[in-house]
Design a protein around this nucleic acid. Sequence first.
DNA 1: TGACTTTAGTCACACAAAGTGACTAATTCG
DNA 2: CGAATTAGTCACTTTGTGTGACTAAAGTCA
Lengths: 223, 223
Amino acid sequence: MRERPSRLALYTVDAVLVTAMGSELAILLGRNSSDRERWSLPWRIPQTGETLDAAAATTARDALGELPSWMEQIGAFGDGKRHPSEADVSVAYVGLIPHQTASPRDGHTWFPVANPPLLAPRQRAMVDGATKTLQSSLDQAPIAFRLLPATFTLSELQQMYELLLGKRLHKASFRRALQAAWLVEPMDEWRSEGRGRPAQLFRYLPKKKRRPHRGVRFDFLYP
Amino acid sequence: MRERPSRLALYTVDAVLVTAMGSELAILLGRNSSDRERWSLPWRIPQTGETLDAAAATTARDALGELPSWMEQIGAFGDGKRHPSEADVSVAYVGLIPHQTASPRDGHTWFPVANPPLLAPRQRAMVDGATKTLQSSLDQAPIAFRLLPATFTLSELQQMYELLLGKRLHKASFRRALQAAWLVEPMDEWRSEGRGRPAQLFRYLPKKKRRPHRGVRFDFLYP
DNA sequence: TGACTTTAGTCACACAAAGTGACTAATTCG
DNA sequence: CGAATTAGTCACTTTGTGTGACTAAAGTCA
């Protein structure tokens, strides 16, 4: 989100920055530079020589003040005509933010992903693409872990999966699958969260220590 | 693959066209326009107003004389410096060709995907991305079916899955999973292929008729 | 012709994984 | 203290997978 785009800007890099707010996912939007009443995803015209990944990282840092804990390209979007720049094509990235540590830069706010303000059609498509990408790589990449702080309880982890999948999971099945996948390591800490029995804290198991395992399947559904 | 690119061409659309040749996958390459000794993926500079999908379709048709039976965007590639054009970024597509019906246009040839000639690094990455995309959407999209003719035997279908997955499958498991997924419909035709018992012909079951089913898992491995 | 080979297609059983409800454990609240 | 609340585990049932052996229908060749 920079100065007015030049006519030579044939493509942009746009970032869909996602975080978990309470019981829903949120994305970061900034005020549109040409029409301050409207909102748009953070975007940027890459410098010559700048890689796409680097441009996406810079876009995120400019809007947020910190780098996402995980980032991946979604794809190139070119069909919707309208974009804040006049670029024909925009390359979209999803990025994850671990539970608001950072406060967004001026003019930027978190919006519920299910209920965003009016966006340009192309950016609307990117947001949809982002949630689709997150869901489909949920068991290939540490999506849920990158949205949580470094240590977390298994209930928090389960709630994060439920949020990402949009459905309830059965506790026993969830933990059984988690064990089978060797994704998580118990720590010697417990956290008392007000009401019930204190929960043990876990952390994401660094890859080196992981035994070979089959891909996780969190297919199971609560009645 | 057109005239020499102008300096304004900041991005291209490139196509990885895949077909099955005997017991391996093959991709279509054309002679590089600037250096006739080298090869490159078919590519194109989109017209203004042309969508990315349309540009990819046109690229395929120009190289092949027909449209792929299935096509999907892989993503945008911008890190490798070298590309036949001087574009900073190329948007790559995979396309499937159903068993050589078409003969490639002049200057184009099929190469084994496992053993291609020297390619520009960015295009090399696209080819890798294409096989990765095919494998990962193998149970979400009718990849195997779009590489086969409209009717096929179950043995042919299994061989196609084995080719795409790069591993052998067990016959009984394969057929059981296929049944559970309602992907295929028997026809009243049999085909005698020389030696043994004639095989029944099947066709891909159009979506309308399919009962709700869980995603197929062809995970199982031969001993 | 009839045994043998080859490919298609199916079955049945053992084993592994997933769905599910009920149970125990450790806290806070009143 | 007892009820309520959240964590964590168990055991049982149902479903899915891995696997080898079996039957079926053709061709080959003595």
